[in-house]
Design a protein around this nucleic acid. Structure first.
Length: 323
DNA sequence: ATGGTTTTTACTGCGTC
DNA sequence: GACGCGGTAAAAACCAT
């Protein structure tokens, strides 16, 4: 009995959605009657004349059967998505701060007191040991820095994973939470191909650059993370948009970097400098006005470096593709 | 710790608006 | 005259040994 109630429940929600979305459009081509999706037989049939409109549709219902509520709980695999961005992957209980019940009604004062107590204990339980608390703080920090730098969510996720691993491998003792969190973010950004320079990172972090580089190296080494040397091309789009330059210029800059790579001008030079120079040179070639000073500011690189690099870039592009 | 390389700082001269 | 640009020398920072 319970079997059928559960199944129909699942089915009904499905049906409600489909009829709600498609609404009036879903009419029988024969008689204009209402269409009913029969999940049992994977068909869509007309309510009036019985015409089968669609067959072999995907059954979105569960493939298991449950015979009572407990069993359903056990077999059901749905739930909120887990995320590495929360210290407990988002699996812990959350008690809302508003004193409202599930229907939005205000709670009685007795209930309110009870909920307050529950909140207190839930919070204590959730951040039980030091590692949990540590993680909580670090993830908060990562989140703050990431949004300050305009880094996408996947980078934060990666950073969180790196931090979590560092914590598991007992890499923390002797190092500040801040430092490791910052280093994780730095590594994540580079791995994701949206690198931020050390300067930019340390600008939003409370950690000194020296400590940052030190912990960064340490983390990379201990966790065996593979981080390829930053590709100058990855900086280009950001510089271009910061300077309000055209797509044409961006394409040009990439070409310059490409030919530079072929000529082997790369090695040893700072990728940021190379990127900045490429953008400047490209702007020059496309007759858009940017000063070396402008570029040096958005790239936080000295003008001298830009000058030196962009001469090399132009030479390289001449020999690579004499135009 | 040291030496070699790269980047930065600071300063100068040239041409243009 | 201010500004953008190019060059240079010395200092600082960085990296590998």
């Amino acid at each position: 009995m319970t079997d059928t109630t559960i199944r129909t429940y699942e089915g009904e929600t499905e049906e409600e959605k489909t009829t709600e979305q498609a609404g009036e459009k879903e009419q029988c081509p024969e008689c204009g009657g209402r269409l009913i999706s029969d999940t049992e037989h994977a068909e869509t049939v007309c309510d009036d004349c019985g015409l089968v409109v669609e067959e072999d549709e995907i059954d979105r219902g569960p493939e298991w059967r449950a015979f009572d509520a407990a069993e359903k709980d056990e077999k059901s695999r749905v739930g909120a998505p887990t995320t590495k961005m929360m210290h407990d992957q988002g699996l812990s209980t959350n008690i809302g701060w508003q004193d409202k019940d599930a229907y939005g009604r205000a709670l009685s004062s007795r209930q309110r007191q009870k909920m307050q107590r529950l909140r207190t204990w839930n919070e204590r339980f959730r951040t039980r040991d030091s590692k949990e608390r540590n993680l909580k703080q670090a993830l908060g920090e990562i989140d703050r820095m990431a949004s300050a730098l305009g880094l996408p969510e996947n980078v934060r996720e990666t950073a969180s994973v790196i931090y979590r691993r560092a914590l598991e491998e007992d890499l923390l003792p002797g190092r500040s939470i801040e430092g490791v969190a910052t280093a994780s973010l730095y590594a994540a950004a580079r791995q994701a191909g949206t690198p931020r320079s050390l300067d930019e990172i340390s600008a939003v972090s409370r950690v000194e650059k020296m400590e940052l580089t030190r912990t960064y190296r340490y983390i990379i080494r201990e966790l065996g993370l593979e981080v390829k040397p930053a590709d100058p091309e990855h900086y280009v789009p950001r510089f271009v948009s910061d300077l309000d330059l055209s797509d044409e210029t961006e394409r040009m800059a990439r070409e310059l970097l490409e030919s530079a790579r072929q000529e082997g001008v790369h090695s040893g030079k700072s990728p940021v400098g190379l990127a900045a120079a490429a953008v400047y040179a490209a702007a020059l070639l496309t007759n858009e006005k940017v000063t070396q000073n402008d570029v040096s500011e958005v790239a936080s690189i000295s003008e001298v470096t830009i000058r030196n690099r962009y001469k090399e870039l132009l030479e390289a592009s001449d020999t690579a593709a004499p135009a």
